[in-house]
């Protein structure tokens, strides 16, 4: 029996726009995943510590403040520091395409822009996690 995919959905930084994160959390729950929702105003330290304790397969980050570059980079750094390299990182929010390319080359598996169908997100995560688990 394969265990359910566990996803941490987190809002790093100071912006209060959590609608997107909640839509994603509900959609992934409905796709059969176990979603741990941590709420607003999380530091990268809080997020990665939660990911470690919850032993999640995926960390999903949502940022609408414009501070995505330093926040995502700090999360990548901490994930590596804590030995959680096997965790799939995904992001969402209002993120310019240059930054998307940069972050995807630095360790974020994929960044999903506004208007992404949630089914596409769930499918991408399922494929990515299955691959990681086989490699592990």
């Amino acid at each position: 029996m394969s265990r359910p995919i566990r996803v941490l959905v987190a809002k790093p930084g100071r912006d209060g726009h959590d609608r997107g994160a909640k839509v994603v959390a509900a959609a992934l729950r409905d796709a059969g995943m176990e979603v741990i929702y941590t709420g607003l105003h999380q530091t990268p330290e809080m997020i990665v510590e939660a990911a470690l304790q919850e032993d999640v397969d995926v960390i999903g980050l949502s940022v609408h403040s414009g501070a995505h570059l330093p926040l995502f980079r700090r999360v990548i750094e901490l994930v590596n520091e804590k030995g959680l390299q096997n965790t799939v990182l995904v992001g969402g929010g209002i993120i310019p395409s240059d930054d998307v390319r940069a972050l995807e080359s630095e360790g974020i598996g994929k960044i999903f822009g506004p208007g992404t169908p949630t089914a596409e997100l769930a499918d991408w995560i399922r494929t990515a996690v299955t691959t990681r688990r086989e490699d592990a």
Binding site: L28, R29, A31, I36, G39, E49
Partner: peptide
């Protein structure tokens, strides 16, 4: 669906870096 939304951590996000606390959903 077999899915779950685990939201108890929302109220327990302090204590980062404190080895004396561990929260699991």
């Amino acid at each position: 669906t077999g899915g779950a939304l685990l939201g108890d951590r929302v109220r327990m996000t302090d204590h980062v870096g404190d080895e004396g606390v561990f929260v699991r959903s």
